[in-house]
Write a protein that binds this DNA or RNA. Structure first.
Lengths: 363, 363
DNA sequence: ATGAAAGCGCTAACAT
DNA sequence: ATGTTAGCGCTTTCAT
């Protein structure tokens, strides 16, 4: 009855050749290889403190040697449903989504969470229904990417049900939910500075959808930097709603003004692409005659020509962060429930590509 | 503590208030509610034949009443890895992907499969590595959306490992793997007919990436229909690679020819968007001066202006179908292994929007 | 610091 | 046609 007896016991002698090869190595194998108990391996895999360094090492070596990778399903089961995380989305068109899903899926795989992805359309009823399904499905937490992150009713419903909510991509921290986001204000300011440094002194701005707080922050960041420009700068602001078409139309208005801007900063890439089209239509060269900047760095940014100067929003990493956060919070929730929401800020990046350049000499 | 007696037994009295609320109802609850054994519930949930209709009914009623929904993790575990399905993707930019993921995820949820999503980049080594991970991870089957569906090496590796492979979106059936796809030839022909019916007699075509068989089928469908036109029609074919930029450039070439076409049919929406930009740049009105048609009906199709006439490829449903197929096949595989691959064809749809119109009178 | 035992929700094989 | 038993791979609680 030494180490091997256990093995014999496990599947019993019953099913003779039931080697269904589920993927092979389990913790058991690793444990035997490392000469420790299964529990120790579990502790190592979960970074639980009380393990001697040497033991941890030999376990890690065994893991490597056997190519062990934990089984998410088993983990989720053993953890008794903790780690069942919902994700609500509505706009499959956003270049955003696939990146976000990928990030979340990735995080789910590493952390052993079980992601349940729920879809709804733009209407409030549909959103409420989806939230209902998520709650009924027993989620420990729910991730809300924009625009659902702005939905008071969704977050209220979740709170009421005792489900942790994470708002992703809002313009500022929410008082009623944890959040993962970027600094839209600073990013917009940075882009504006980039344009100003290129010599632009008359810059058009295309706003995003008004119901998203991030839109406001982007505008504020832009305006603030315009006011700060040393040889003073001037700006024209047009409404938009994050769609290509609204960007096209806004750019048309901008370019047909008496004194058109030499640069256009759109609040997202879709609208920037629209602005690009408007410029081309007028026979303007980008960036020779007009600079165009976007925001988000979605796939579209490099799918258009010239490729867009834009702000890289770390969407995938935000999704991962959201996943980790919701997991952690749903675990802790039982203890101290009523504390201030966490607000996690991720770094963005200015990506200079081909759509922005020096201001044209004299105009 | 009435019907809860068993409940007490379950977690033992040990963990006093361990009501971690995993989502609530389990098969056990349903079984008790319906007055049958747990196994019967399992059989009903899995549509196993040998259950009396009346029993099945009462179980279903209990399921409804309690709002029961099966736990995918537990299922996957119990099935010992069967139902562990891999999905390989590489191009997160494709408007394709998020729809595909959503479809697959959806199917996974209903069928209780456990989707493992693996990423790789375009290189062959990276693909091989990803396939290796998937195999090592013990997948019962792997879904390969385009362009991986064209990879002989990937499919060979999978076969060798005894893992079921499903190729999605290829131009024709593969001899070495099951497939789910649409009729690219017929769809392209249909679009061409649409253009011809609008009076166009000189039509430009922008080809897709040469390494995808679907590209070839689309071209063939186009050419066939051109030849069939009654007042005879003429065509110009330009290469492309499915990117916006290649579409833009191809359209430039097309439009700068001595006798330019009155309509351009691009092999996908990205390239059609590029063609749109090229037209705008020349001050051409779409569809007044030039009609433009795309293919796929990705989100981009409605994000550009004018919105694209295109072919709707049922991506999400293809993903679902692929999931169902891989599940079924991986289950049956043990029995009869060596039979002809299944080839599943899904219906497409011609979507007429604003980018195509009557041929301009005289030119 | 480590191990043993029990059980997460479900399905497979084996009774009945 | 339905019930019983064992166990999927892991984490939990309780020893040691």
């Amino acid at each position: 009855m030494v180490s091997l007896s256990k093995k014999t016991t496990r599947r019993g002698g019953r099913v003779s050749r039931s080697k269904k090869r589920t993927g092979g190595v389990t913790m058991d194998h690793v444990a035997r290889e490392a000469g420790v108990s299964l529990m120790t391996v579990s502790r190592v895999m979960n970074n639980v403190p009380g393990v001697k360094a040497s033991t941890r090492d030999s376990v890690m070596r065994a893991v490597k040697a056997l190519g062990y990778s934990p089984n998410a399903a088993a983990r989720s089961l053993a953890r008794n449903g903790a780690g069942r995380i919902g994700l609500l989305y509505s706009n499959p068109s956003a270049g955003y989504l696939s990146q976000f899903l990928v990030g979340a899926l990735d995080g789910a795989q590493t952390s052993g969470a079980l992601l349940v992805i729920e879809k709804c359309d733009a209407s409030l009823e549909s959103e409420a229904a989806a939230i209902g399904r998520l709650i009924a499905g027993g989620m420990a937490g729910v991730i809300l990417p924009a625009p659902h992150a702005e939905s008071d009713s969704a977050i209220a419903a979740l709170r009421e049900a005792g489900v942790v909510a994470i708002a992703v991509g809002t313009g500022h921290a929410r008082p009623d939910a944890h959040g993962v986001r970027m600094d839209d204000f600073a990013a917009a300011a940075e882009m504006t500075r980039h344009l100003i440094e290129l010599g632009h002194r008359r810059i058009g701005f295309i706003k995003g959808a008004v119901n998203q707080t991030a839109s406001v922050e982007r505008l504020l960041g832009f305006e603030t930097e315009i006011r700060r420009a040393d040889p003073p700068a001037d700006c024209l602001v047009e409404p938009g709603d994050f769609t290509y078409r609204s960007g096209f139309e806004a750019a048309e208005r901008l370019l047909s003004s008496d004194h058109p801007p030499t640069a256009i900063f759109a609040s997202n890439d879709d609208m920037a692409a629209g602005a690009l089209a408007a410029a081309h239509r007028r026979g303007l060269d980008v960036p020779g005659d007009l600079s165009v900047a976007g925001f988000d760095d979605t796939p579209l940014a490099t799918a258009v020509w010239p490729e867009l100067t834009t702000i890289r929003q770390p969407v995938a990493r935000m999704a991962e962060a959201a996943l980790r956060l919701v997991l952690q919070e749903s675990r802790d929730q039982s203890r101290r429930d009523s504390r201030a929401p966490i607000d996690q800020l991720l770094p963005h990046q200015l990506i200079v590509r081909a759509s922005t350049g020096q201001v044209p000499d004299k105009s």
